[in-house]
Structure formats: structure tokens, C-alpha cells
Lab assay of single mutants.
Amino acid sequence: GKMTGIVKWFNADKGFGFITPDDGSKDVFVHFSAIQNDGYKSSDEGQKVSFTIESGAKGPAAGNVTSL
């Protein structure tokens, strides 16, 4: 299901970062391709987002990331 969290950091040059879930669980990796914004796929530190957890090649990753 959908979770909410805060972007801990995001490196636009490398195209990835981490989200800290609101439920206190482990930080989740986020790749720019998962960000659902139109246009520039980046996110700012401290941005509140909703997301799903997908199982990626390197473990859990955020999917369907949407700014709230």
C-alpha cells in the first residue's frame, strides 16, 4: 500500500536519494525514475512524499513517488 515519508536527501546529479518513512521503518532508496512529477524528476530534502515499496535488484526501493 501507499506510505508517506520525508525525502532525507536527493542527489539530482546521480539521480537517487533516500526517503525516511513516517512509520519509523528503515530509510528507503529512491531512484529518479520512480518520481511521478511531470518534467524534471528530482526531489528536495524535506519534501513530504507518498510512495509504494517495490522490490528492486538491490533490495527495497520506493515506487510511485508523489509530492504531497
Rank of each mutant, 00 (worst) to 15 (best):
V49C: 05
D38H: 12
F51D: 00
F51E: 01
S50T: 09
T52S: 08
Y40I: 12
W9D: 00
A12L: 10
F32S: 09
K41L: 13
K41G: 12
A57Q: 10
K58R: 13
V65L: 04
T66M: 11
G56S: 13
T66P: 02
G39A: 10
A34P: 03
D38V: 12
T20C: 11
P21H: 02
N37G: 14
G15Q: 03
G46D: 05
N37A: 13
D13Q: 14
G17W: 04
G56V: 05
I53M: 09
A61N: 08
G5L: 06
K48W: 13
S67W: 15
F18N: 00
G24M: 05
A62K: 00
G39I: 11
G59A: 04
G24Q: 04
A62P: 03
D22N: 05
S50C: 12
V49A: 00
I6W: 10
F29N: 00
W9H: 01
K48D: 02
M3H: 10
V65C: 04
A12V: 12
F10W: 14
I35Y: 13
E45C: 15
M3R: 10
T66R: 12
N64V: 06
Q36A: 11
T66H: 09
H31Y: 08
S43R: 10
V30K: 00
G24R: 04
F10R: 00
F51M: 01
D38P: 13
H31W: 09
F32E: 07
N37Y: 13
D27F: 04
D44Q: 15
K14Q: 07
H31F: 09
E54H: 14
D44H: 15
P60N: 08
G59S: 05
I19D: 00
V65Y: 01
A62R: 01
V28R: 00
K48A: 11
S42Y: 13
K41P: 10
D23C: 08
V28Q: 01
V30W: 08
L68A: 07
G56Q: 10
V7H: 01
D27I: 06
K58Q: 10
G59W: 07
F16T: 02
K41M: 12
D44S: 15
E54I: 15
K14A: 08
A34F: 05
W9Q: 01
D27M: 06
A12K: 15
S33Q: 05
N11Y: 04
Q47V: 11
F18R: 01
G1E: 11
K2F: 12
A61E: 15
L68Q: 06
F18E: 01
A12P: 11
F16R: 00
G39N: 10
K8H: 07
G15L: 04
V30M: 13
K2D: 04
K48T: 06
K14V: 08
I35D: 03
F51T: 00
I19H: 02
D22I: 05
G59Y: 07
T52A: 03
G46W: 11
I6C: 11
V7G: 01
G5D: 01
A61F: 15
G46R: 08
H31G: 04
A12D: 07
G39Y: 11
I53D: 01
V30D: 01
F51I: 02
W9T: 00
K2Y: 12
S25L: 04
F29R: 01
T4W: 07
G59R: 07
A62E: 02
F29V: 01
G39P: 10
K14T: 06
W9F: 08
D23K: 05
S25T: 10
F16K: 00
S42V: 13
D38M: 14
K8V: 07
Q47F: 10
K58L: 11
G63R: 14
S50V: 08
F18S: 00
N11A: 07
P60F: 11
T4D: 01
K26N: 10
T66D: 04
H31N: 04
I35K: 03
G1H: 12
T4P: 01
A34W: 06
K48Q: 08
K58C: 14
E45S: 15
I19G: 00
T20F: 05
D44T: 15
F51G: 01
N64E: 06
F29T: 00
V30E: 01
V28D: 00
D13S: 13
S55H: 14
A57F: 12
S33D: 04
G15W: 04
F29Y: 09
E54D: 08
Q36K: 10
D27R: 04
N64G: 06
D27Q: 06
E45W: 15
K58P: 06
F10I: 03
T66G: 04
W9E: 02
F16W: 14
W9I: 02
A34K: 08
Y40V: 11
I19C: 04
F16I: 06
F10H: 00
S50R: 07
Y40R: 09
N37P: 11
S33T: 12
K58E: 06
E45N: 13
F32W: 15
V49I: 04
P60E: 07
I53G: 02
S42R: 11
K48N: 05
L68Y: 08
K8Q: 03
S25E: 05
L68G: 04
G39D: 11
V65T: 01
K41T: 12
S50Y: 08
G59V: 03
K8R: 11
D27W: 07
S25D: 07
D27H: 05
N37D: 13
V65D: 02
K58D: 07
L68W: 06
V28C: 06
K48M: 09
N64C: 11
P21G: 02
V7R: 00
S55D: 12
S33Y: 06
K8P: 01
S42I: 14
I53T: 03
F16H: 02
D23L: 04
F18K: 01
N37T: 13
A62W: 03
E54P: 01
F10G: 00
K41D: 10
I6Y: 11
V49W: 04
D13M: 13
S50K: 05
S67T: 12
P60T: 09
S67A: 13
N37L: 12
S43F: 15
S42A: 12
S55M: 15
A34S: 10
T4K: 06
A34V: 08
G59C: 08
G63W: 13
G59K: 05
F29E: 01
G15M: 05
F18Y: 08
A62I: 03
G5C: 07
N37S: 13
S42K: 10
D23S: 06
F51A: 01
E45M: 14
S33R: 07
K14L: 13
V28P: 00
K14D: 03
D44M: 15
H31R: 05
E54T: 13
G63Y: 13
Q47N: 09
T52F: 08
N11P: 01
I6T: 13
A61Q: 15
S42C: 14
T4M: 07
E54R: 09
I6M: 08
I35F: 15
G1K: 14
I53P: 02
H31P: 05
I19S: 01
S43D: 07
T20V: 12
V49G: 02
E54C: 13
S42Q: 09
I35S: 03
W9C: 10
Y40S: 09
K8C: 09
G56M: 08
G24K: 05
G17M: 06
K14R: 11
F18G: 01
I53Q: 03
P21N: 03
A61C: 14
K26S: 11
I6H: 08
Q47G: 08
V65N: 02
D13E: 14
